[in-house]
Design a protein around this nucleic acid. Structure first.
Lengths: 164, 164
DNA sequence: TAAGATTGAATCCTCAATCTTG
DNA sequence: CAAGATTGAGGATTCAATCTTA
């Protein structure tokens, strides 16, 4: 089962590459990036935890640290007192903008470049399939909370135009 | 890039499944399993670190703990004083035998079952390709050290006969 | 001097307990 | 009482420094 080795080595290699070339580890980047992809650069903590696949506890600890660095700010939701909304600061957004290309580079070097086009398509389908099976194990309902209404640009599409 | 999400969630899910159903986390299982797949259930620490994709430091810490539980023993290599050989104890081998089916079950549930046969073949090819590219980044020469000469059975083929 | 390995300190993650709000 | 979130303690991981031997 060579894919077990893959699960062991690749995440580790990605994290190491991020630490080397940026001031963020992979998980911190994922959190900031998820916020930058959110409407108003804002999201409830619980949603953010789900997106980043972290426990609420882990996310709390990490966001506390990101807040100390002034990249994120937290505020309780006006319409639902037990929800806390995390918002990317301008400095945090700058950090995402600066880091995103390096993240793309790392993923490209580690995953995309070694594969040919059809393998990349296959991997995308496989990843989608496995993830949806994973999500089925903890089925859960929807949430709702107001978000700032401005339509800030997100960073999720960055790098897609850099041809391989 | 859905495979980034895969790298984030799958290893985490695998590790959690192992913790839940066994007394080992995923990495500890990998270490014991690698030893059980080695001739004489023995290997130099540095080789073991490579196989398990751990730093020597991380391996040292973990093997120290496994040694406390009497699952592994260490001894310096007679023919090369700076090499330390790690050996699986009988109790450690029993532990691997008990845990291996649960590991197989977890991998099956998380990776194999969601995919069809051709996707599984594709994933195997993809994993092999990515791993070999990864290894090329730290090219290194060979080592040599005597190992016990008995041909202990390994556990690497376990579970392969359990039809899907 | 470099390879193999270990150690300790600092950091990160997990788990269980807690707090607040609906 | 349940959902959302946080906290603190205990374990695990990393990084840099160290030790020993070829």
């Amino acid at each position: 089962m060579p894919f077990v080795g893959l699960l062991l080595k690749l995440p580790h290699a990605l994290d190491a590459a991020m630490r080397r070339s940026t001031g963020l580890n992979h998980f911190e980047y994922v959190v900031l990036s998820a916020l930058s992809d959110s409407a108003g650069h804002t999201r409830p903590m619980s949603e953010l935890a789900e997106i980043a696949n972290a426990s609420q506890s882990r996310l709390s600890h990490v966001v506390a640290k990101l807040e100390q660095r002034d990249w994120v700010r937290r505020a309780s939701c006006p319409t639902n007192g037990r929800v806390v909304m995390a918002t990317l600061t301008d400095a945090g957004y700058d950090e995402v903008l600066a880091t995103a290309p390096l993240h793309v580079d790392a993923v490209r070097a580690l995953v995309i470049d070694p594969l040919d086009t059809s393998q990349l398509e296959q991997l995308t389908a496989i990843a989608t399939r496995i993830l949806s099976a994973l999500d089925d194990e903890h089925a859960d309902p929807e949430k709702e909370c107001d978000r700032p209404s401005d339509t800030t640009r997100t960073v999720g599409e960055m790098g897609k135009d850099r041809g391989r």
